[in-house]
C-alpha cells in the first residue's frame, strides 16, 4: 500500500490583474446598485441651467438639456451592465453548444457549421448590429438579442477549437471507454475543461458590448434618450466638442473606459490563473 501524499500544495500565486480587475468590477456593480444613494440629482429630470461646467452643485456639470451629468454617469452602468451582461451570457449559451457540436461532430457537419460561422463573421460587427437595431428598434430586449447574435460566433469559434484540441486528449478517449455518450463527453469533460477560456472571453465580450451599445446609442439606433446611458450621453454632448463644452462627453467616456478596463483585467487575470494552474499540474 502506498499512501498518497499531495506532491504539491495549491499555493496562491500572485495575480494582481485578477485582483484589481475583480475589485474594480465589484466597485462598478456597487455604484450601479447604490446609484439612487450616490446620485445628487434625478438622472432624467432637468435640475439646473443647461451646459453648466462642473461646480459644487453639479459635480460634473450639466448637459444641453440641463440634466446633472454626475447623476447620469452613476446611473448609466445599470443599463450598460444589464445589456452587456445578459447579451454576453446569451451569446455564450448560444455559441458554446454550437461550437462544441461543430468540433465534435465528424466531417461534413462540423465543416458546414464552421463555414457558416465564417460567413456570419464576415458581416462587420458594428455595421450589422447598427443595421439590425435600426430595423427592429432599440428596445432593451432587442439590444440584448442583437448582442447575443453578433457575439455568438466568437464563442462558437472558441469552443470549436477547444473541442478539436481536447478531443485528441486521452482523458476524452477514457471517458468514452467509461461509457460517456457524446453529449456526456461534451458536457462532462469538454465544457468544464474549456471554462477558463470561455470566462476570459466573456469578460472581454462584456467590455466590447458596452462599447458597442454606446456606439449604436451614439448614432441613435440603440438606447433611447433621455435614458442614462454612456453612449447616449456622449452622443448628446458631441456638438459641444467643437465649441468647448467638453464635460458632457469626457466624463461618461472615462466612466465607460474604466469599466471596460476592469473587465479586460479580469479577463487577463483568468488567463494568467489558468496558465499558473496548468504549469503546476
Amino acid at each position: 500500500m502506498t499512501t498518497v501524499a499531495p506532491t504539491s500544495t495549491p499555493t496562491r500565486r500572485r495575480n494582481p490583474q485578477l485582483l484589481i480587475g475583480l475589485t474594480a468590477v465589484a466597485v462598478i456593480l456597487l455604484v450601479a446598485l447604490l446609484a439612487p444613494l450616490l446620485a445628487t440629482h434625478d438622472p432624467v429630470r432637468v435640475s439646473g441651467a443647461v451646459l453648466q461646467p462642473p461646480s459644487g452643485e453639479h459635480w460634473l456639470g450639466t448637459d444641453r438639456s440641463g440634466l446633472d451629468i454626475f447623476s447620469r454617469v452613476v446611473y448609466a452602468p445599470r443599463v450598460d451592465l444589464l445589456l452587456a451582461g445578459v447579451g454576453t451570457l446569451l451569446a455564450a449559451l448560444l455559441g458554446v453548444p454550437l461550437g462544441a457540436l461543430a468540433g465534435y461532430a465528424p466531417g461534413i457537419v462540423g465543416e458546414a457549421i464552421s463555414r457558416t460561422l465564417d460567413v456570419v463573421q464576415a458581416f462587420p460587427f458594428f455595421i450589422l448590429a447598427m443595421c439590425l437595431l435600426g430595423i427592429v428598434g432599440g428596445s432593451l430586449p432587442n439590444i440584448i438579442a442583437v448582442l447575443a447574435i453578433v457575439n455568438a460566433p466568437i464563442y462558437a469559434r472558441l469552443m470549436h477549437s477547444q473541442t478539436r484540441t481536447l478531443r485528441g486528449r486521452m482523458f476524452i478517449d477514457a471517458a468514452r471507454v467509461s461509457g460517456c455518450r457524446p453529449r456526456q463527453v461534451i458536457l462532462g469533460h469538454i465544457v468544464p475543461n474549456s471554462l477558463s477560456p470561455i470566462l476570459a472571453q466573456m469578460s472581454v465580450t462584456l467590455g466590447m458590448s458596452i462599447i458597442l451599445v454606446a456606439g449604436v446609442s451614439f448614432v441613435g439606433a440603440g438606447v433611447e434618450p433621455p435614458t442614462a446611458e454612456w453612449g447616449v450621453m456622449i452622443g448628446d454632448g458631441s456638438g459641444g466638442m467643437f465649441t468647448g463644452q467638453w464635460w458632457p462627453v469626457v466624463f461618461p467616456g472615462i466612466a465607460l473606459a474604466l469599466t471596460v478596463v476592469a473587465f479586460a483585467l479580469v479577463s487577463n487575470g483568468i488567463t494568467v490563473a489558468n496558465q499558473q494552474r496548468s504549469r503546476r499540474a
Binding site: 467590455g207 456606439g215 451614439f218 456622449i234 469626457v250 473606459a257 483585467l265
Partner: peptide
C-alpha cells in the same frame, strides 16, 4: 488596455476638442 477600452468615436471627439478647439 487603454486603446481597447476607449470607444473610437469618443476618442475621435477628444481629438477634435484638443486639436481643433
Amino acid at each position: 488596455l487603454m486603446a481597447g477600452a476607449v470607444p473610437d468615436f469618443w476618442f475621435a471627439m477628444i481629438m477634435v476638442f484638443v486639436f481643433y478647439y
